[in-house]
């Protein structure tokens, strides 16, 4: 138990420090890396809670995807920014992180069965949490609707992105 607690402490420190770094870093890229640490810390919490699948998804989607995309955009900024933009970015970053945290929190509030969900590998006959996550998403009496709505939202975003990209080409013509 002490070991688990130690890990929990380390994760807490990592997550909070990452978040603070994101807020107050002088460099945007540092902020992005701070965000990465923070997100990895969150993934660690999921792991600690026995939610392997969610942890890995966190890493794949947020660390491997979102942060990389942030970096992709942010890397083109010069390393030394003006004070004004620093502040602004810190504020924007802070709001973004808060929004993210709020979003995550609301998502899990929405599920409302957080405490009742089985821990990974604890349920007999279950190969892990993947199975139960999959079932809860795709069984019609559980989270099928939110799942589908989310996917439609992503589809809309995708189509919107394509539309924006296309319009540019048309302007050139």
């Amino acid at each position: 138990m002490t070991g688990t607690f130690l890990v929990f402490l380390v994760l807490c420190v990592a997550t909070i420090c990452g978040a603070l770094l994101t807020l107050w870093s002088r460099y945007v890229v540092h902020a992005a890396f701070g965000l990465m640490i923070s997100l990895l810390g969150v993934a660690g919490f999921y792991l600690l809670l026995g939610s392997d699948f969610l942890a890995v998804t966190q890493v794949v989607v947020y660390v491997g995807g979102v942060v990389v995309l942030y970096l992709f955009g942010v890397m083109l900024t010069p390393p030394d920014l003006e004070e004004r933009s620093k502040k602004r970015i810190a504020v924007v970053g802070g709001i973004a992180v808060l929004a993210l945290i709020g979003l995550l929190r609301s998502v899990f509030q929405l599920s409302a069965h957080w405490k009742n969900l089985p821990l990974a590998g604890t349920k007999e006959g279950e190969p892990g949490l993947i199975d139960s996550v999959g079932r809860s998403f795709l069984e019609s009496d559980r989270f099928l609707l939110p799942f589908e709505v989310a996917s439609v939202l992503l589809l809309v975003a995708l189509v919107g992105a394509v539309f924006l990209a296309r319009r540019k080409v048309e302007v050139e013509e």
């Binding site: 890396f33 990465m36 890995v56 890493v59 794949v60 660390v63 491997g64 942060v67 990389v68």
Partner: peptide, 11 residues
Amino acid sequence: LITALLSLEVI
């Protein structure tokens, strides 16, 4: 999990 770990490499 392997995919996730390999995606860390990009970072």
